[in-house]
Design a protein around this nucleic acid. Structure first.
Lengths: 116, 116
DNA sequence: ATATCTGGCATCCTTTAGGTAACTGGCATC
DNA sequence: GATGCCAGTTACCTAAAGGATGCCAGATAT
């Protein structure tokens, strides 16, 4: 008996949760940036090089948004010139399994498309 | 020894997979629509009622996109007036775990925000 | 000396997503 | 015979996302 049909209220609830998630990670760049940072790219230019095709302006605004949502931490070191380091927060780690699922699906999908 | 640092090429690869996924499911509405349809809402108006705030135009265009990506199947029955039924494809099922993760995170996030 | 790297900012522009409102045509209902 | 339901379509519009280019200032590398 797979896939028990939940009542409308439950479905509506699930959709709302989904929309909450989308609100935070929506857009073309936020998740790719998070992956890049999480994998050790802490410098602005490193991140830019990791995320193919992103411009400085977009990266800059997206990093700010991610910082506001407490997924990314920005640290400035008082060197000269100042060094800036981005890291993912521990809260960002809660996104891990979700992101891994998305990566896995993308890989699968890509393979499937190529077969056609 | 958690979180072994993968090499740049691997990271770039992962980001590309992620972007492939985003290309298919990006936007405010596609995933919510998929959930609504998957949960048994097969009629246009039912879907619209399930996905709070969506307009007929947006729903119509999004359904077409989802059909093109083979996540949704559209069937027209030759009744009078014609009956139209949307269902999720079996390929769409491969998105299940990913979507469930997103729902779970959204719920968690919502609770967390409320606590502040 | 000059070329390049750093972490961005400013400006301008284009594209896309998404929203508003009105309308359709056939059927069923009141 | 007026109203409402279904499954949309059309035309128009706004806001936001994204892109292109140029620039800065200090530092390091050649």
């Amino acid at each position: 008996m797979p896939d028990i049909q939940p009542d409308k209220a439950t479905v509506a609830q699930q959709i709302r949760h989904l929309q909450d998630t989308l609100y935070v990670v929506n857009g073309k760049w936020k998740l790719p940036i998070l992956v890049a940072v999480h994998q050790g790219n802490s410098r602005f230019r490193d991140i830019q090089r990791s995320v193919q095709g992103i411009t400085t302006k977009v990266l800059s605004t997206e990093l700010k948004a991610l910082e506001q949502n407490k997924l990314v931490v920005r640290k400035v070191y008082d060197t000269s010139p100042p060094t800036v380091e981005y890291t993912t927060s521990s809260y960002c780690d809660t996104l891990q399994t979700m992101i891994l699922e998305m990566i896995a699906w993308g890989k699968n999908h890509h393979d499937r498309i190529r077969e056609e």
